[in-house]
């Protein structure tokens, strides 16, 4: 199976997702199963997101993470909680390779509110 240059061009355009235009959050889950479970719930609720490799700056784990617009943070956390998905970590992307952790208190406060 081979991809022509046109295909690659198309992929680059598709991967340049609009959610990267606004500040994004990255949620870390316990394994790929939970990442895909999260993806299923986000898709079902029409929330734009990317499944990305866990950024090296966050963890040396070789797994995947979910990135979404910070504008959707509350909804995402609510959805994950409703699906009983435990969060291993939540970060705000400050720059291309810079991430700031969002504390557990803030996560809980967001879900409760």
């Amino acid at each position: 199976m081979s991809h022509g240059p046109g295909d690659n061009q198309q992929k680059l355009i598709t991967m340049w997702s609009p959610i990267q235009q606004t500040p994004t959050c990255v949620v870390i889950l316990f394994s790929i199963h939970f990442v895909l479970k999260a993806e299923k719930f986000l898709k079902r609720n029409g929330i734009s997101h990317d499944v990305i490799p866990v950024p090296r700056e966050i963890s040396s784990d070789c797994g995947m993470a979910v990135e979404f617009s910070c504008l959707e943070k509350e909804r995402v956390l609510e959805l994950l909680a409703s699906a009983d998905l435990r969060i291993a970590g939540l970060y705000r992307r400050d720059g291309k390779n810079s991430f700031k952790p969002i504390s557990a208190e803030q996560i809980t406060a967001n879900v409760v509110n």
Partner: peptide
């Protein structure tokens, strides 16, 4: 398992 690779301890959660 592809998860918790930084540790040499087997994960304790299902299904991993």
């Amino acid at each position: 398992t592809g998860s918790n690779s930084e540790t040499e301890i087997q994960p304790d959660f299902m299904p991993d």
